[in-house]
Amino acid sequence: MKHILLLCMAVIFLQLMAGCTQTAQQGQPAATPTPAPANTVTISAPVATTTVSVSDNTVLIQNMAYNPAQITVKAGEIVRWVNKDKVVHSVVFSKDSKIDPSGPLSASQSFSVKFYDTGVYNYSCGIHPQMQGSVVVI
Rank of each mutant, 00 (worst) to 15 (best):
C8H: 04
D117W: 02
Y116M: 14
V73Y: 12
M9R: 09
V87I: 09
T49W: 04
V113S: 03
N57E: 09
Q28T: 11
Q109Y: 06
V79A: 05
F13A: 15
T72V: 04
S134G: 00
Q70I: 13
H89F: 02
S44N: 13
L14M: 13
L60V: 08
Q62C: 07
N67F: 08
M131C: 01
Q132R: 15
K74L: 15
T51W: 04
P29Q: 07
S112G: 07
P129N: 04
Q15A: 11
P101L: 05
P33C: 10
I71Q: 08
I99P: 00
V79K: 10
T49A: 13
M9G: 06
D85V: 02
V52D: 02
V136L: 10
I4K: 05
N67W: 05
I138M: 07
S90E: 02
S124N: 10
G126R: 10
I78V: 14
C125D: 00
A24S: 13
T23G: 06
V47G: 11
G126E: 00
F93S: 01
K98C: 02
Q130D: 04
P104E: 07
S102K: 04
N57T: 13
A10W: 04
H3C: 06
S102M: 03
I78P: 00
Q70D: 06
Q28H: 12
R80I: 01
H89R: 14
G76D: 00
S102H: 06
Q25V: 14
K86Q: 10
D117E: 08
W81Y: 06
T50I: 09
A31S: 12
P37M: 14
T72I: 08
P68S: 12
M1S: 08
A18F: 12
L14I: 10
G133M: 03
M9A: 15
A45W: 07
K86M: 13
L105V: 01
V11M: 14
S55Y: 03
P101A: 14
S134Q: 09
V87L: 12
V79T: 03
K2A: 06
